[in-house]
């Protein structure tokens, strides 16, 4: 009759059960408060990190891969905008690049889902650019409330030397 005779043992069992039940209840009732974010990544033509092209002939296309990840807590509609720029036209975390949009790719992702897809992008020199250009990839997300595309502040770039070719 140790349990019935010893109040301390019973008190410990009761305390453990109270802590466990309160903890379990909090975990069930707490709202989904995980940090919301998106991600973009640039990969080589085999869709892996590394082996990025360093030289391209003016006017040709190079192959790369794009990675996009959604962790916004809901399905999201993304587009990746491709521009060719230089040090002066790189985007920031707040504003997109002023360089002209050349190409875009759109994708719809579930929450906590990512996609990697191959792309082929044209590389050429603009009138005011030297032989080194930045291939800029910006991530935009569609805002369901406003009905507009909004720049996420996320971007990636690849510097490449452009040769005139034969």
């Amino acid at each position: 009759m140790s349990l019935l005779q010893d109040d301390e043992v019973f008190a410990v069992i009761l305390a453990v059960s109270i802590v466990a039940s309160v903890l379990g209840t909090v975990l069930i009732l707490r709202p989904f408060s995980s940090e919301k974010f998106s991600a973009i990544g640039l990969l080589d033509e085999n869709c892996k990190i590394g082996n990025y092209p360093e030289i391209a002939v003016n006017g040709t296309e190079i192959k790369l891969c794009l990675f996009v990840y959604n962790h916004l807590g809901e399905p999201a509609y993304y587009k990746v905008v491709y521009r060719i720029g230089n040090n002066d036209t790189l985007p920031s975390n707040l504003t997109s690049s002023p360089a002209q949009e050349i190409k875009e790719w759109r994708v719809i992702l579930n929450n906590d889902e990512n996609t990697t897809f191959p792309i082929s992008v044209p590389v050429f020199l603009n009138a005011n650019e030297t032989d080194k250009v930045a291939l800029i990839f910006e991530l935009w997300a569609y805002n369901m409330t406003t009905g507009n595309w909004e720049y996420t502040g996320l971007w990636t770039d690849l510097y490449i030397n452009v040769t005139k070719g034969g």
């Binding site: 349990l3 019935l4 009761l14 059960s17 109270i18 379990g24």
Partner: peptide, 13 residues
């Protein structure tokens, strides 16, 4: 879940 301690208090002994 919240009723488990109460059940233990009443029923366990």
């Amino acid at each position: 879940l919240l009723s488990i301690p109460l059940i233990i208090y009443v029923a366990l002994p």
